[in-house]
Simulated scan of single mutants.
Amino acid sequence: MSQPPYQPSPKRSVLAPLLVIGGLVLLLALVIGTAVTVVVLRTDDKPSATGTPAVRAKPSEPKAVEFRRVLTSKPGTCATPAPDGTACDDKGMLYTLGKVELDGSHVTEVKSGHDSTNNYWYVNITLDPEGEQLFAHLTGALAKQVPPANLLAIVVHGRVVSAPSVQSEITGGQVQITGNFDQAAVEALAKQITG
């Protein structure tokens, strides 16, 4: 006697596709979960050589950050409080400054970094569109001057934290401050600007 051909039970045929669909949903959830984790972990705030993240923020007190022309600079100290239009730095320089032409309300990001190709440290300041235009106008005018009239003071809470010379008009809203900096100096400068 021959056996009848195998026929799956109705319950089993319904369960098999449901198990396959359930497995695919679970696999999709795992893939999406992994992708979200990768996206969340991916960031430009890579630790520096010492393991500390680069400073990356807006100024906490935007009006306390000012961009001003340097009218004169000489060794000296500031009276307390400093007279209007003057400010000192931590290196013993006294600056006579022009009006505030741009403030921290136009700064969208400040970060320190290292150019490994050319081996130098820098602070990068990103400006909003209005700040980009104001800064281009200011640096275009400063670039036509001779030292010290081509210096741009970055003043934070009444102290000059940097006074770089301007060699050319800076457009594009990306301001990079370079100099004889090491990592600690650029991180300190970025923190001073962000507050």
Rank of each mutant, 00 (worst) to 15 (best):
D89N: 13
N119E: 10
G85E: 10
D89C: 07
V110D: 02
G113T: 08
G131N: 05
A136C: 09
G98E: 08
H114L: 09
N118Q: 15
P148Y: 14
L138M: 08
L102C: 06
G140L: 02
P148R: 14
L94S: 09
D90A: 15
L138S: 00
V146W: 10
D89E: 04
L97R: 10
V146L: 09
G85A: 11
Y120R: 04
L127F: 02
C88P: 03
D90R: 15
H114M: 15
Y122G: 01
W121R: 00
Y95T: 12
Y95C: 08
L134C: 09
D89M: 08
P129L: 11
H106I: 00
A87W: 04
D103W: 02
S105T: 15
G98Y: 07
W121E: 01
A87C: 12
D115K: 08
A87F: 06
D128S: 05
V155G: 01
H106D: 07
L127N: 01
A87V: 02
T86A: 05
N150T: 05
E132K: 04
K91E: 12
V107M: 04
D84N: 14
P148V: 07
L138G: 00
V146I: 13
T126H: 02
K111I: 03
A141K: 14
G140P: 11
L152D: 01
A87N: 01
Y95Q: 07
G104E: 11
A141H: 08
L94R: 10
D84V: 12
K144C: 01
Y95M: 12
I125E: 03
D128L: 06
L102F: 06
D84Q: 10
V146R: 11
H114E: 12
D89H: 08
L97W: 11
V107W: 02
H106A: 08
G85K: 14
E109H: 11
G92Y: 06
L142S: 00
L127W: 00
Y95W: 15
V100N: 12
G131T: 00
S116N: 15
L134R: 09
